[in-house]
């Protein structure tokens, strides 16, 4: 009888279906509970592992919450100055063209201080993967307004809500890079549900394949949450993200190769 099957009989090596990849180190992630960064790190690590690319990978971490990413992924990594990761990655890939090179950047890093580096690396069509985590807020410094903060959204530097007349409009960086001839594959995803995690992982895997084929810049935006900065529980923040972020930053491919 099924009910009689004990847990001990299920928990056997041959029945294993999911285990944290060995490419994630055992260091405890510095992220707040429920933060999407951990999930995004993990699926990137899974793709690198599954594609057998550990010895070929050089990653670039940003300044922001994920500055310590190099503590969590068991691959060679460089920590870039704020916003400069695409320039750093440009040189890595130019000098070591056979390696898999990625940057991992938040919205302040990529879409504010690093706008120039982002646009020009994409415009040159640098053969790198840029992963862009957009949660509409500066997490590490404690919840200030980001270039991607939604209109009316409250942050510690827009305490009455973002007033677009004085604070500017939320920037759709991914839409901009999709218009550049150097980008090959541009997509916007999320990691807050199992289905979305699977889609994002698929997108990253595609980007890895395209980089092998020397196709140009692949850009994967992950719309994510910031429970602490948004002052919500993780579960609430994911719901708020669906209701508020997704209408302005709709998920889906924005530029796909003509195959």
């Amino acid at each position: 009888m099924a009910e009689a099957t004990g847990i001990k009989e299920i928990i056997k090596p041959e029945n294993l279906v999911y285990k944290k990849t060995k490419l994630m180190t055992d260091n405890t992630l510095s992220y707040c509970p429920g933060c999407g960064h951990g999930t995004a790190h993990r699926i990137l690590a899974e793709v690198i592992d599954e594609e057998g690319l550990q010895s070929q990978t050089i990653g670039v971490s940003p300044v922001g919450c994920s500055v310590l990413m190099y503590n969590y992924l068991d691959v060679d990594m460089q920590e870039a100055a704020h916003g400069r990761a695409p320039a750093v990655a440009t040189a890595i890939k130019r000098l070591l063209p056979d390696k898999f090179v990625f940057t991992y950047q938040g919205d302040g890093d990529l879409a504010a201080i690093g706008t120039s580096e982002t646009i020009h690396a994409c415009n040159r069509g640098e053969n790198i993967l840029i992963i862009f985590i957009n949660n509409g807020i500066y997490g590490m410094t404690g919840g200030q307004m980001a270039p991607t903060t939604l209109e009316g959204m409250k942050t510690s530097t827009s305490p009455y809500g973002r007033d677009v007349k004085t604070m500017g409009n939320p920037l759709k960086m991914t839409d901009i890079v999709a218009t550049l001839p150097g980008t090959y594959y541009v997509t916007r995803q999320s990691v807050h549900t199992p289905a979305n995690v699977r889609k994002t992982k698929k997108a990253i895997r595609k980007a890895v394949q395209y980089q092998k084929l020397d196709k140009g810049t692949c850009f994967v935006e992950i719309v994510s949450n910031c429970p602490s900065g948004w002052k919500m529980t993780p579960v609430q923040s994911n719901k708020w993200m669906e209701e508020n972020m997704f209408p302005f930053y709709p998920l889906g491919d924005m530029k796909t190769p003509e195959e």
Partner: peptide, 22 residues
């Protein structure tokens, strides 16, 4: 030898960082 005209001096020195780190 790779020779690249960067978009700014800032980008250029950060390319140097990336290359030197390799």
């Amino acid at each position: 030898m790779v020779v690249l005209q960067a978009e700014s001096e800032i980008a250029a020195i950060n390319m140097v960082y990336g290359g030197a780190a390799c």
